[in-house]
């Protein structure tokens, strides 16, 4: 720990200036709008908590909230779990690793629209690759996107395909940063590979692990384009999310008041969800 009064301020000032310039007004504006009944371009009427009261008594909003939370947990946990597995597989050198690594992280390079389109084709009930493949295997076809029971899971699948690479890369970078001597020491002491994983590697990648969870859950929480392209939020609101709802209110109907109120609710939920991670990541080591 270094001591200086002006160093930290100097180092932080560019970020502070940028963020203040770019977000203070937008955030303040949205916070204010959330308590008004504002149609874009129209007058601003203060309505107190009305927007929130309307939202909480609304079946569609509650459905979207539920979906958003379920999706966030399912997607981020799946992705980080798979990412950790992959990182362990790729940690040790093996033949072809340098070639296979870019292949496995490729999905995340794709534009989300392209990624969603690929999966729209793959998940199609009649023409889709997956169902055609199931025919070959003799498994019954699945109504991936059109069944309210499976639609959200299908979107988790698509998101997992695209974003597991992020968790994978983060965790791989974390593993690679473990000094080799620590692992060697553990091996010399006769630790089995499981013990090595549990007692040596896992504690050392704790920070990247939580970071991956944090980043993926915040992103998953804002899910908007995949369900917009794949299901339009349906069937029967089973894939509607808060972001999609805010988008419709804000950009299709231009009800800025309602849209901002949804955003405020999102903010509060996200803060609660991420405080746990944040606390883990910010906790100083030792």
């Amino acid at each position: 720990m270094f001591r200086s009064h002006w160093h930290p301020l100097l180092l932080l000032s560019p970020a502070l200036v940028l963020l203040a310039l770019l977000t203070l007004y937008p955030i303040g504006y949205s916070l204010m709008l959330a308590f008004t009944n504002t149609q874009y371009g129209g007058p601003m009427t203060f309505v107190g908590l009305d927007n929130f009261r309307d939202l909480f008594s609304d079946w569609f909003f509650n459905q979207a909230t539920r979906n958003t939370i379920v999706f966030t947990l399912a997607a981020s946990l799946t992705q980080v779990g798979l990412g950790l597995l992959l990182a362990l597989l790729f940690h040790q050198p093996f033949r072809g690793r340098a070639w296979l690594l870019p292949l496995c992280i490729y999905p995340m390079m794709l534009s989300t629209l392209v990624c969603s389109s690929i999966w729209k084709a793959w998940l199609h009930y009649d023409f889709g690759w997956l169902n055609n493949f199931f025919d070959v295997l003799g498994i019954a076809r699945v109504s991936w996107l059109s069944d309210p029971q499976t639609a959200l899971a299908a979107i988790v699948l698509v998101d997992t395909w695209q974003w597991t690479p992020l968790a994978f890369l983060l965790l791989l970078a974390g593993l690679q940063a473990i000094p080799p001597d620590i692992e060697e020491a553990a091996t010399l002491e006769g630790a089995t590979s499981w013990q090595r994983f549990w007692h040596v590697r896992l504690p050392l990648v704790r920070a990247p692990l939580f970071l991956a969870l944090l980043l993926r859950s915040i992103d998953a929480f804002k899910l908007f384009d995949k369900n917009y392209v794949l299901t339009g939020g349906g069937p029967a609101y089973s894939t509607e999310t808060l972001s999609l709802l805010a988008y419709k209110q804000g950009f299709k109907f231009f009800h800025l008041g309602t849209a901002s109120a949804i955003a405020v609710v999102m903010l509060i939920i996200a803060l609660v969800l991420s405080l746990a991670y944040a606390w883990q990541v910010m906790r100083r080591p030792h």
Binding site: H124, Y125, L145, S146, G234
Partner: peptide, 21 residues
Amino acid sequence: APTGVEVYNSGEVRDAIQQGK
């Protein structure tokens, strides 16, 4: 209607009729 019509948009409608489905 076809299975999955709940998420059909114009593109799927067009494919279905053009493919004789």
